[in-house]
Amino acid sequence: MQAQPEAAVILVADDDPFIRHMLTCYLKQEGYQVVEAPNGEAALDLYRDHLPDLVLLDALMPVIDGFEVCRRLQAANQSDLAPILMITGLEDEKSVDQAFEIGVADYITKPIHWAVLRQRVRRLIAQHRLERRLREANHQLQQLTLIDSLTQVANRRRFDEYLLQEWGRGGRDRRPLSVIICDIDYFKGYNDHYGHPAGDRCLQQVAKALSQGINCTDDLVTRYGGEEFAVVLPNTSLAGAAAVSDRLVQAVRALGLPHAAAPHATVTISCGVASVVPQLSYLPSDLVVTADQALYQAKAQGRNQAKATRMVLPPPGRSLTTWV
C-alpha cells in the first residue's frame, strides 16, 4: 500500500453493491479515503458534502445515470471540478465520445483491470492537485497586482476596475453609487519635517484607519495616488457616504500622529464625497470629478473635514467638467 500524501478523498458511485464494495476495499487498501454513493442522486449530494479529489462514476445507473451526474457536476462546479473517471461496460464509439464531450477525464471498462485502475487514479489525482495549486498561485499573483505594496490596500488599478464594475451594476439596478476621495492634509510638509520613511509609516497608519472605518464588505478602500486614498461605496446614498466620510476623518484624527508642520499639530485628512444613481450613457470618471470638487471645498474651508455633494449628470454630449 502506498498512501497518498494528505490522503485523497474518492467518491465511488455505483448502483451495484458488489462492485461498489470491491472498489471501496481496493481503494482503501491503496490509502485513499472513500465515500460511497449507491445512485446518481446520492452522488450529487455527497459531492457537495465532501468535495472529493476524484469521482469514480458508473455510467449505467437507474433514475440518474452517470452521464447526467457528470453534466450536473459540470454545471455546478465549473471552476474546480474533481476529475471524473467513468466505469462502464460500454465500449462503442458513441458512448465513449459522449463521455468525453460531457467532461469525463478518463474511463475504464468492466470487468475492471485493477492495475490499470490503480495507475489512472494516481495520475488523475496528482494532475488535479497540481492544477489546483497552479490556480491558487495564479490567483495570488493576480491579487498582488491589485494591492498597493506600501499600504496593503487596493491600488489605483483596482479602484478603476471596481468603480467601472459598480457603475455598471448601479446603472442596471438603479441603485446609488458613492465615492470618497481622501487627502492627507499638509503631507508634503510632513515629509519635509519628518523624512520620507516616517511619511511611509504615516501612509500605512492612515490606510489602516480608513480600512477599519468602513463596515460593509462591498466597500473598497484604495490608494488613489501619493497621499490620496479613494473609497468606493456601492449601493450607498449621499447621506450614507457622508456619514462614512465623517467617520474616516475622525478615525484619522484619533490616531494622534504628531504633525508639527500642520495647524492642528496632528495628521488629519480632508474628504470629498459624491453620489449618483449611475446612467450607463455617462462615465464613472464624472463621479470622481465631482468628488474631487467636493474635496477642494473641504480644503478651502479649513481641511480636517468632509464635504459631500450630489452629482448632477450633464446633458448628453456635454462633459461634466465643462458643464458644471
Rank of each mutant, 00 (worst) to 15 (best):
Q2H: 15
I10V: 14
D15Q: 10
P17K: 07
F18W: 10
L23T: 05
Y26H: 11
L27S: 11
K28T: 12
K28H: 07
Q29P: 00
G31S: 10
Y32D: 05
V34A: 02
E36I: 03
A37I: 08
G40E: 04
L56W: 02
P62T: 09
D65H: 05
V69P: 05
C70A: 15
A76S: 15
M86R: 13
I87L: 15
G89N: 09
E91L: 09
K94D: 10
V96N: 03
I102S: 06
H113Y: 08
E131Y: 13
L134A: 06
Q140K: 15
T145V: 13
D148N: 09
F159D: 04
Y162I: 13
Q165W: 12
G168R: 07
D173A: 14
R174I: 09
L177V: 10
S178A: 07
V179C: 02
I180Q: 01
I180H: 01
C182K: 00
C182G: 05
N191Y: 04
G199F: 02
R201N: 15
V206S: 07
K208P: 02
A209G: 04
L220T: 05
E228D: 08
E228C: 08
A230G: 12
L233Y: 03
L233I: 11
L233P: 04
A239W: 01
S245C: 11
R247I: 07
A254D: 15
G256H: 10
G256E: 14
A261Y: 00
A262M: 06
A265T: 08
I269N: 00
I269R: 01
C271N: 08
G272N: 05
G272I: 06
V273L: 02
P278F: 00
Y282L: 09
P284F: 03
D286V: 01
L287G: 03
V288E: 05
T290N: 10
Q293Y: 02
Q297Y: 04
A298K: 06
N304A: 13
A308N: 01
R310E: 13
P314G: 02
P316N: 04
W323T: 03
